[in-house]
């Protein structure tokens, strides 16, 4: 058999293509549901983490448990830039074209809304920071924040993923009831208590040593998204 003839080469190439093609399709299709589940699970875990449900999101939690908690407690809605809920839309259906539609997650306990969570994205020093911010039912107090993806320097800007940094946000307010204005959280340089007055402590948090610019990124990101979601949140505040 002449393995170098043009005819043979073509036939051989086609066989190799078909065999590997079939094999890959089988793999890809067969595993699709599992893969999609994983991606969904990842998003849901982070939302749950932001609304501070410690137990169900420990890394070892079974997927089914996470989903059960999520499905029973989180309601997904989409809002527009006027702050109105868009009926019949789910966050999953949003595409890059929907620049004035935003996903919002309502955390309910016994039918009552306990917290609102929404994604925050912004530029750090080296990378884009991805996270979720959760606000209490009063639409003013921060319940929790989480950053789940970033490429900042480990030990410096990378500290934003650590609990000590994220815990600083808890209890801060994004709206000043006294001055009636928005107060997106500001990451200061150094310790907040040293830098700002007591009144302003409600919207300033400690910075990370030697990571001023990542801190600035977080400040910018807070400012941007708190303003976006204020369209919705402002309607909930009792003033």
């Amino acid at each position: 058999m002449n393995t170098n003839s043009t005819r043979y080469t073509f036939v051989f190439a086609i066989i190799v293509c078909v065999v590997s093609g079939v094999l890959l399709s089988v793999f890809s299709e067969g595993l699709r549901p599992q893969k999609e589940l994983n991606e969904e699970l990842d998003v849901k875990r982070n939302i749950l983490k932001a609304v501070v449900l410690k137990e169900p999101v420990a890394p070892k939690t079974k997927a089914a448990d996470v989903l059960k908690v999520y499905d029973s407690k989180i309601e997904e809605v989409v809002i527009d830039d006027k702050g109105n809920v868009v009926e019949g839309k789910k966050p999953k259906q949003l595409t890059g074209k929907d620049t004035n539609l935003f996903p919002l997650y309502l955390y309910k306990e016994g039918g009552q809304v306990v917290a609102y969570a929404f994604p925050v994205v912004g530029q750090g020093l080296w990378s884009t920071l991805y996270g979720y911010l959760a606000v209490e039912a009063d639409a003013t107090t921060i319940r929790g924040i989480t950053f789940y993806k970033h490429g900042e320097t480990p030990g410096l800007g990378g500290e934003i993923e650590k609990e000590w940094f994220q815990n600083n946000f808890k209890g801060k307010t994004i709206y000043s009831l006294k001055d009636h204005k928005l107060t997106p959280t500001i990451v200061v340089k150094g310790k907040a208590a040293d830098v700002v007055s007591k009144d302003e402590l409600s919207y300033h948090v400690d910075g990370i040593t030697a990571a001023t610019l990542t801190g600035k990124g977080v400040t910018d990101l807070m400012d941007r998204w708190v303003r976006v979601y204020d369209a919705y949140l402002s309607k909930l505040r009792k003033i």
Binding site: T3, N4, S20
Partner: peptide, 18 residues
Amino acid sequence: NFIPSQIRIIVQLTVVSA
């Protein structure tokens, strides 16, 4: 013994990729 030598790299690559 069946791989045509002209396209052997491509064939190897296909197997590896798969």
